[in-house]
Each structure stands twice: as structure tokens, then as C-alpha cells.
Amino acid sequence: MQLSLNSNYSSTLKTTAWVLLVAIALPILVHLAPPFNGIPMGAYLLPMFYMPIVALIAYRLPVALIVAALAPPINFLLSGNPHWGLMGILTFELVIFTLLSYVFLLQGIIKWIAAPLAYLGTKTISSAVLIFIPLIEASPVQFFSTSLSNAVVGIVILFVINVLCLKYLPNQRKEA
């Protein structure tokens, strides 16, 4: 018996693979830059959030969710960054970010600010979850405020990526 993938499934796998590779490589490259004020550049630039929003706009929700769920653990296995607790919360955040972005992208004018809104919503949800599941040593309020104050530049970058992707990338989302 010969196993063959239909071309659509094969194409989705190839797309997911290259998007995942970029999603893994980009944060590693950003973390090669020296920390600023003792804080890794990833906390400022938010590189883990770039490819899920690109995949969501250019491709389909499943591609974006796979990338969001796999990039942090694979990045952790390859580089040891971030530590396991932060990797757990980051994985959770990326999945929530992707789902919130998906919902916001379906909403008329809000789609133009979907990524920044989804990031803010994600941080609110993840900070609330930290009350019940303390994966990191920081208090949920401290985690929320520090994350947002550090991520101002990254939020602006997410906005720019959001707008550029909506404007210039062909939308291939075909939800079944």
C-alpha cells in the first residue's frame, strides 16, 4: 500500500515547515543581541509573535496554531531560552495570541490593529492564569506591567507587520 498525500495537505505541511523554521530562527537571532538594561532583546521586540500573525494572515488558522504551539518548545530545546517556566507561559500566550488575532481579523476595521489588540488580550489572560498556575516567580501584576512596559517597541512592530501583511500578502485563508 502506497501512502500519498493530496497536494493541499502536502502544501500545508511544506508551508508550516518553512514558517516554523523562520519562527524558530528569528528569536534566536534577536537573542544574539546583547541585553538592554539586563533584559533580553526578545522581551522588547517580541520576535516569537511575528510569524503566527504572518501565518494567520497569509495562510490558515491551523498553520498559525501549529507554529504558535511548536516554536517556543523547539526554540527552548535548541537554545535553552527561555527557561522552562517562561517557555510554558510563552507557548500558552502564542496560542491565545493566534486565536485572539483570528477573531479580531474577522472584524471589519479592527483587523488593522488585530495583532496589538491580541497581544494586550493575551497578556491579560496569561497574567490571570498565573494567579492559579505560577509558572514563573513574578507576581501576575508585576508580570503584566513589566511585559507591557518592555514590549512597547514590539507592539509597534506587531502593528506594522499586521498592516503590511493585510495590505500586501495574498490572503490564502480558506476555513473549512
Rank of each mutant, 00 (worst) to 15 (best):
I133N: 01
A69T: 14
L94H: 08
I125L: 15
L130K: 07
K123A: 07
G85D: 05
T98H: 03
I110C: 03
P82M: 09
E93T: 08
A58P: 07
V103Q: 08
M87L: 07
P52R: 09
L100P: 07
P140D: 07
P34T: 14
L117A: 11
N81P: 05
I136T: 15
P134E: 13
G85N: 04
A58H: 11
M87D: 06
I133A: 04
L78M: 13
G121A: 13
L77C: 04
V141M: 09
W112L: 02
P35V: 00
M87K: 01
P35F: 03
P73M: 12
L86T: 02
L65C: 10
I131S: 07
T91H: 10
L86A: 04
L90T: 10
L32R: 09
A69Y: 12
Y44S: 03
I125E: 08
N37S: 14
W84R: 00
S126L: 13
L65W: 10
P73C: 11
W84N: 01
P140M: 06
Y44P: 12
A43G: 00
L99M: 15
A114Q: 08
A33V: 05
V30P: 01
N37K: 15
K123D: 06
L90M: 14
A33P: 00
L90E: 08
A128F: 11
P47W: 09
A55H: 02
I39D: 01
L32Y: 08
V30N: 07
P34H: 13
L70D: 03
E93S: 15
L78Y: 13
G38R: 15
I39Q: 00
E93H: 12
A118Q: 06
A43Y: 00
T122C: 03
S126M: 13
V141S: 08
L90G: 12
M87E: 02
L70W: 09
Y119W: 12
L105Y: 13
I57W: 13
G85T: 05
F97Q: 10
H31Q: 14
F92T: 14
Q107K: 14
P52Y: 01
L94S: 06
F97P: 11
A71R: 04
I57F: 09
G121S: 14
K123M: 14
A43L: 01
I113S: 11
F76Y: 10
T98M: 02
I28L: 05
L100N: 08
V141Y: 07
V63T: 13
Y50C: 08
K123C: 04
P34Q: 14
Y119L: 11
P35D: 03
F92K: 03
I89C: 03
I131W: 15
V54W: 06
Y102S: 11
A114D: 05
I89K: 04
L94W: 04
L117V: 09
I57Y: 12
L77V: 02
P34G: 13
A25W: 01
P62M: 07
E93V: 07
I28W: 06
A25N: 00
P35R: 01
L56H: 08
P82F: 10
S127T: 14
F36E: 09
R60K: 07
S139W: 15
V141D: 09
Q142R: 15
F76R: 06
A128Q: 12
T122P: 00
V129T: 15
W84C: 00
F104N: 14
I74G: 05
V141K: 01
I133P: 01
F76H: 10
A55Y: 04
A58W: 12
M48H: 06
E93D: 15
G88W: 02
A43N: 02
P73I: 12
